[in-house]
Simulated assay, not measured.
Amino acid sequence: MSQSIGRAVEILRLVASSTDGKRLVDLQRETGLTKPTVHRILNALRGHGFIDQHEDSKRYTLGQEISMLGWSAGHQAYDLRDICADNMVEVAQRTGDTSFLSVRSGYDVVCLDRQSGSYPVKAFTIDVGNRRPIGVGAGGVVLLASLSEEERKDAYVAVKGRLDQFPAIDLKAIRHAVDRALDCGYALSNGFVLAEVRGIGVPIRNIEGRTVAALSLAAIKDRITPERLPELLTVLKAGASQIEQRLASAMQSKARGTA
Rank of each mutant, 00 (worst) to 15 (best):
K122L: 14
L101N: 00
K35H: 06
Q64L: 07
D82R: 13
A16G: 08
E90S: 15
G32M: 05
S116Q: 11
S146Q: 06
D97A: 08
F50N: 01
G49R: 12
G117R: 03
C84P: 09
G137Q: 01
A123P: 05
Y119Q: 07
S72G: 13
F100H: 00
N43F: 05
S102F: 01
G117Y: 04
T125S: 10
R29C: 09
G21D: 12
G137K: 01
S72Y: 11
V109W: 00
L14V: 13
V128E: 12
R13G: 11
A145P: 13
T37R: 03
L144A: 15
I126N: 12
E65G: 03
Y107N: 15
Q3M: 13
G139H: 02
L101D: 00
S4C: 15
R104K: 01
Q28P: 06
L112V: 02
R29W: 03
T98I: 06
L33W: 05
S116C: 14
Q115G: 10
V109Y: 01
D127N: 08
N87A: 13
Q76L: 12
P36R: 04
M88F: 00
V141D: 03
D86M: 06
A8L: 14
D20A: 08
K22E: 14
H39S: 09
T19D: 07
Q76W: 06
I134Q: 04
S72K: 11
D26T: 01
E30S: 07
E65N: 14
G63E: 09
Y119D: 08
V9L: 11
P120K: 01
Q93C: 03
V25F: 05
I51C: 02
Q28F: 03
L42I: 00
E65W: 03
V141I: 09
Q53I: 10
L144M: 12
V103R: 02
Q3V: 13
D79C: 04
R13H: 13
R59M: 08
I66F: 00
D56I: 09
S99Y: 01
E30I: 01
G21T: 12
D127K: 04
N87G: 10
G6S: 11
G74P: 09
G21W: 04
V91R: 00
S4G: 07
L14G: 09
A77L: 10
E149P: 15
G32E: 14
Q28M: 07
S4P: 06
